[in-house]
């Protein structure tokens, strides 16, 4: 209630709740705690539609749109003893859901799918290990970094409805990779952030996996996590967040920043800085691997420690909408739905779809 008072729905000259319009609500009757939410394209009976995927620790559910902005559960995959900790979005992929399971870190990646041959839903193991970072990229590819005591492995795998195939090793940097992001419009380019605050650029095709360049992400900022990257006019623009920043540090109440890198020289310059909305106390919660924040195109969203959800226009460096915590409780999850929607989830398993 205190947090709700600190964040009135309409902040003077600030972000407005009206920028987000509630479209529908998915209520999970099982009462299980929501861990993650995502969207997936699903094709059935010759019809392709956008479906919502919700995850609890022990199961993952697929929801289809019904009439009157309602949603119905189509199927629930029951998982084993290892808790589900994340849904890994797979852009431009149909009828496939990828999930990460583990305790504190990812120990297993699984593919959830519908087999038309067997007319049944099933799941298959993609990878096990001490997995530090994972991302789904276009053309049904999954890239992950994992660590043994001796070395770090960075791998790309091609996913299909039959499971995983065609593994390609990427050259690992010396430091642990903390996050990956594909480069929009460049099918063979991938960027990553490392524990030593570097930006790494790879060439990802099924032939080489070269490490092209390592650049510093900025000496004044603590460990950066990459969310998205775009190549334009010979520069590489990377959206970064700083999950471990403290308000007293130089980056203040920074949520996201967009940095332009010149990959030829390794030099960089900050382009826009997106701060927490006015009137908001406490840092945002953004953790790599267990993302409480999300970036789509040039929009950022994150759950704040106050229990509100904030949305930023990252190109303008401006907070454009705030969803205050309601009487039903604090927000726990904020994810962009494919298209222009935002999915916001509460701990009780309720997920709300907003039009943005």
């Amino acid at each position: 209630e205190d947090a709700a008072e600190q964040l009135p729905p309409v902040l003077p000259d600030g972000p407005r709740e009206e920028n987000l319009q509630l479209v529908s609500e998915l209520k999970d009757s099982s009462g299980s705690c929501a861990v993650d939410v995502s969207t997936v394209w699903w094709e059935a009976d010759g019809c392709r539609e956008l479906r919502v995927v919700t995850a609890s620790e022990s199961s993952v559910s697929l929801w289809e749109p019904l009439a009157h902005d309602c949603w119905g559960k189509v199927h629930t995959w029951q998982l084993g003893e290892i808790p589900v900790i994340q849904i890994i979005p797979l852009p431009d992929t149909c009828n496939l859901v990828c999930i990460a399971l583990g305790e504190l870190e990812i120990g297993e990646i699984r593919l959830l799918l519908y087999s038309s041959e067997a007319d049944s839903f099933k799941h298959s193991l993609v990878k096990t290990g001490n997995i530090k970072a994972v991302v789904g990229i276009k053309d049904q590819r999954l890239v992950s970094s994992s660590r043994t005591l001796q070395e770090q492995q960075v791998e790309m795998v091609l996913l299909s409805e039959m499971g995983s195939k065609d593994w390609q090793t990427l050259m690992p940097p010396e430091e642990t990779v903390t996050a990956f992001a594909e480069v929009e419009g460049m099918r063979e380019a991938l960027v990553g952030t490392t524990a030593a605050n570097s930006i790494v650029v790879w060439s990802v095709n099924l032939k080489t996996g070269q490490l092209l360049r390592k650049m510093n992400a900025g000496y004044s900022y603590p460990a950066s996590i990459c969310h998205r990257a775009y190549s334009d006019s010979g520069l590489l623009f990377v959206v970064l967040s700083h999950p471990h920043a403290k308000e007293s540090e130089s980056c203040g109440n920074l949520a996201f920043r967009v940095v332009a890198f010149n990959p030829k020289t390794g030099r960089s310059r900050g382009v826009t800085f997106s701060s927490l909305p006015p009137g908001c106390v406490g840092r945002q919660v953004l953790e790599a691997g267990y993302l409480e924040g999300d970036v789509w195109d040039t929009s950022g969203a994150a759950v704040l420690t106050s229990g509100a959800v904030a949305v930023w226009d990252l190109l303008q460096g401006r907070c454009v909408a705030v969803l205050p915590p309601g009487p039903a409780g604090h927000w726990a999850l904020a994810r962009w739905a494919l298209g222009t929607g935002l999915l916001a989830g509460r701990h009780d398993g309720t997920v709300c779809l907003y039009r943005y």
């Binding site: 060439s203 092209l212 006019s233 520069l235 010149n262 030829k264």
Partner: peptide
């Protein structure tokens, strides 16, 4: 961003770095 900030910019940076990097 100006070129003086970031050094000489190449539109073909990806191809050029791919050709320079060890296979």
């Amino acid at each position: 961003c100006s070129e003086s900030d970031l050094g000489p910019i190449s539109l073909n940076w990806f191809e050029e770095l791919s050709a320079e990097a060890p296979p």
